Amino acid sequence: MTSAFVRAHTRLGSAPHVPEIQLHLAEDAFDLWERVEDQVGEKGLAPPFWAFAWAGGQALARYVLDNPSLVAGRSVLDLAAGCGVVALAAAKAGARRVVANEIDQFAIDAILLNAEANELSVQTEYGDMLDGDADGFDVVLAGDIFYDTAVTSRMMPFIHRLRTRDVTVLVGDPGRAHLPREQFTRVAHYEVPVPTALENAEIKTTTVWQPR
């Protein structure tokens, strides 16, 4: 089972910028990444994005926890949720309903394990949601989503559809090259500790953005 794999290759701890939330995280980022990469083609595994608290997610989770009125009593979607730290922050901040979306079953299982560890209620949605308009959600959150041009080309039309419905959209980004900054307004920024094995840095200056 994928949940057994998640348990076997992670340890329950917390991300440095969001110590309030417990997460199943890889102890050795490089080792797990290599272990899964070796099986990507052979067994159809995706890279283990779910085993790390990426800077964009940490910053966005911190912002939500520090500004709970953004989500309190509202329906929240965490898009491309990874380990689910943003979804968990929203649940902890008092959201009425939280759904964490992912296209990797390992991530779905990691999110459910993390929700259980924090005694928080988070639903999951497996599959690609970028062709829709997130109907039924008041808030859409996305941490570290602008990592390549293909995703950005689909993400921006999705965000524009959300804004026509007055959905609150917030994005956490650690300076990825593909974020179209001219279409966003900065609402907060943080210095976020990150695994050096993945980011080639100990700290990433990370911004929370809102579309204009």
Rank of each mutant, 00 (worst) to 15 (best):
F146A: 04
H178G: 05
L88P: 06
R74H: 14
G57F: 02
A72D: 12
V36N: 04
V40M: 15
R96M: 12
A177G: 07
V187Q: 06
D38Q: 15
N101A: 11
L79E: 02
L112G: 08
E34F: 11
L198F: 01
R186V: 14
P19F: 05
L25C: 01
V85W: 07
V18P: 01
D144Y: 00
G56P: 04
V139A: 05
M155P: 02
W33L: 15
A100Q: 01
V18K: 02
A142L: 07
G127L: 08
A177Y: 10
I21A: 05
A29I: 05
E202L: 13
N67T: 13
V18F: 05
R154V: 08
L141R: 09
W54E: 02
E102M: 05
V171G: 07
F146C: 04
P19K: 11
A87G: 15
I145V: 13
Q210L: 08
G56E: 03
V169G: 06
Q58L: 07
D128M: 12
A90R: 01
T149L: 12
V36T: 02
R212P: 15
V192M: 00
A188P: 11
H17S: 14
I203H: 06
G175P: 09
V151C: 08
Q58R: 05
V140K: 00
T124S: 01
L179Q: 03
I108W: 03
A91N: 03
L32T: 01
D28G: 06
D128R: 12
R154I: 08
A177V: 10
G172K: 04
V71Q: 05
P180E: 04
R97N: 13
V139E: 00
A81C: 12
D128N: 14
A61M: 03
A188M: 12
D173I: 04
R186L: 14
L70I: 15
A8Y: 00
A4S: 14
P68A: 05
R165M: 06
E27S: 11
T207N: 11
V192S: 02
D144N: 01
I203R: 08
C83F: 10
D28I: 03
R35M: 14
P68V: 02
D166A: 12
H160F: 11
T205D: 13
G175F: 10
R161V: 00
E42I: 13
T10Y: 03
A89N: 12
G41H: 14
W54F: 00
D148N: 15
T149F: 11
P157F: 04
W50V: 03
A4E: 15
L79T: 06
V99H: 02
V122I: 04
I103D: 07
V171K: 01
A55T: 03
L60N: 02
R11S: 13
L77R: 14
F184E: 02
D173V: 00
L70R: 09
L179F: 08
I159M: 10
L170T: 04
F106Q: 14
R7F: 08
A80T: 02
E42Y: 11
P48N: 04
L179S: 07
D133I: 08
I21W: 00
G57S: 10
R154D: 06
A134N: 10
I108Y: 05
Q123F: 13
S3A: 14
R35C: 13
A53C: 08
